[in-house]
Design a protein around this nucleic acid. Structure first.
Length: 480
DNA sequence: TAGCTCGTTGGACAA
DNA sequence: TTTGTCCAACGAGCT
């Protein structure tokens, strides 16, 4: 009898069994499969942050359980920057013929994967990679002049011209696995969970399993997506999809979401949300074509911008102690739940970069470490946009006003009261500017400013003016 | 090619 | 309280 062909399916940002072209191909072509996850602590400079690691732990646990129902076992390894070595030794140990993996698009990972691929091919092994993460791969889209898009709307219009492959599930009933007896670590041995218990709120907020994501998607399908356009800007309401962490880890694919919501009859009513999926695509497109933008301004002239580093400002912002309720509620939501509402992300980012004149990279790294949905392409694009150094960036005089943004988008004050409970009894009239409240009323609400809740670290008119001055000065130096 | 239009997410101020 | 207008300037993308 002919020897069974063997393959490794190396899982990366595609921790799912559904709509997985790697698994599907392996099963269709009759391979015996070794499903592999390598926890590489140093696979690039933006290796997963603490909140992401928390999610990863649970995603792997869930994936392991799903595989077990088909008689498979997830093989788990750990390294600090040498995934290639692990692959090589597994290939030898199990006489593997081919490796399948889903492509990643972080600049340093592209480079690393290329080297691994070349190395393996030189040794006579076959490597096949697939698109498991996106609707459109960044290099496949170009504008009429043969270059990449820099503005969202034309990019989006262009993409809409193309059909998107429907998701396609592997036939797991006919799957064969390679029998593995040794060498795999347990998930807990990866030490992905925090030593200090700061993750309690995460458990209250998330069910980080495939099933948890399917539930969210079901809610969108049942009506949430229809209401999305109206509710997306109200942080007190559960009006967004919150699917970002599942998407980021690939527990649910973009294709699955797209096809669930874009059925012809629904396309229009869901278009507000679907558009957001294309924003994710667009940020991968930008990152691919401007790899330097992960830690340098996309527009090089912004290298000259004079940020004013100030540790106490940065700390106050990180810990939600700026004295601006909408900012503090957002930063505390982030810390407690590993997630922040998108509207509030813009307000807090603008405040850090404009009012406080702190380098956008400080904000980007804080988000990176604390968000369960941290995604290099989205994070980079978002911060560059707010800092004004991005491709289609916000003009420098566009400075979010933390008071009016609060009053406009958290009218009821429910959001602020949830995350800044010390302000619970402050009436709506003053909730977004407690410093304007008369002493007596403050006392009645049980708040002493500077003691129970911080006084503002900078006054809004001051912060705004300083930002305008700094950016005007920057424009001047550019002209010279 | 030159010229035209437009750009996810806003704020301040005047009327 | 609401609404309209201006705030700069530029480069992408299209015709």
């Amino acid at each position: 009898m002919a020897k069974k062909k063997k393959c490794i399916v190396w899982l990366r940002k595609d921790l799912r069994l559904q709509d997985h072209p790697g698994f599907r191909t392996a099963i269709e072509e009759g391979y015996q499969i070794l499903p592999l996850y390598i926890w590489d602590e140093k696979d690039h400079r933006w290796a997963d942050g603490a909140a992401s690691q928390w999610w990863l732990h649970h995603a792997l646990t869930d994936l392991e359980e799903q595989l077990e129902t088909y008689g498979g076992k997830l093989h788990i390894c750990h390294t600090k920057g040498d995934s290639a070595k692990i692959l090589e030794s597994l290939i030898k140990d199990y006489e593997v013929d081919v490796i399948f993996w889903g492509r990643r698009y972080e600049p340093e990972i592209i480079e690393r994967d290329k080297q691994i691929k070349e190395g393996l091919k030189a040794d006579g092994f076959e490597v096949k990679s697939f698109n498991t993460h996106l609707l459109f791969e960044p290099h496949t889209i170009e504008n009429k002049s043969g270059s990449h898009y820099k503005v969202f709307t034309p990019y989006w219009k262009h993409c809409r011209e193309f059909a998107i492959d429907p998701p396609s599930d592997p036939d797991w009933e006919s799957c064969n696995f390679i029998t593995v007896n040794k060498g795999s670590l347990s998930i807990s041995e990866l030490n992905l969970l925090p030593d200090i218990e700061w993750d309690k709120g995460f458990y209250d907020t998330w069910e980080p399993t495939r099933k948890g994501g399917e539930e969210r998607l079901k809610l969108m399908k049942k009506g949430k997506a229809k209401l999305y356009q109206d509710k997306r800007d109200t942080p007190a309401e559960d009006g967004t999809s919150k699917l970002s962490p599942w998407l980021q880890w690939g527990q649910i694919s973009a294709r699955e979401i797209y096809h669930e919501l874009a059925k012809p009859a629904n396309e229009l009513i869901h278009s507000g949300y679907l558009r957001q999926l294309f924003w994710r695509e667009f940020s991968y497109h930008l990152l691919f074509h401007a790899p330097h933008s992960i830690d340098r301004p996309l527009r090089p002239e912004y290298e000259e911008f004079k940020w004013k580093p100030n540790t106490s400002y940065l700390k106050a912002w990180q810990h939600g102690n700026t004295g601006y309720p909408i900012i503090d509620a957002g930063m505390r939501q982030l810390w407690q739940t590993g997630w922040m509402h998108n509207r509030v992300r813009m307000v807090v980012s603008s405040f850090l970069v404009k009012h406080l004149l702190q380098d956008w990279r400080e904000g980007a790294s804080w988000f990176w470490d604390t968000l369960v949905d941290a995604d290099l392409a989205n994070n980079t694009m978002g911060w560059q946009w707010i800092a004004g150094s991005g491709a289609d960036a916000s003009p420098y005089f566009r400075i979010f006003n933390p008071i009016t943004q609060g009053e406009k988008f958290d009218k009821t004050g429910d959001y602020v009261r949830e995350f800044c409970p010390e302000l619970a009894d402050v009436p709506n009239k003053y909730l977004h500017k407690p410093w304007d409240m008369p002493e007596l009323e403050l006392a009645a609400a049980g708040v002493v400013l500077g003691k129970d809740y911080p006084s503002p670290i900078i006054s809004h008119p001051d912060g705004r003016q300083k930002a305008l001055d700094a950016f005007a000065e920057f424009q001047e130096t550019r002209k010279k």
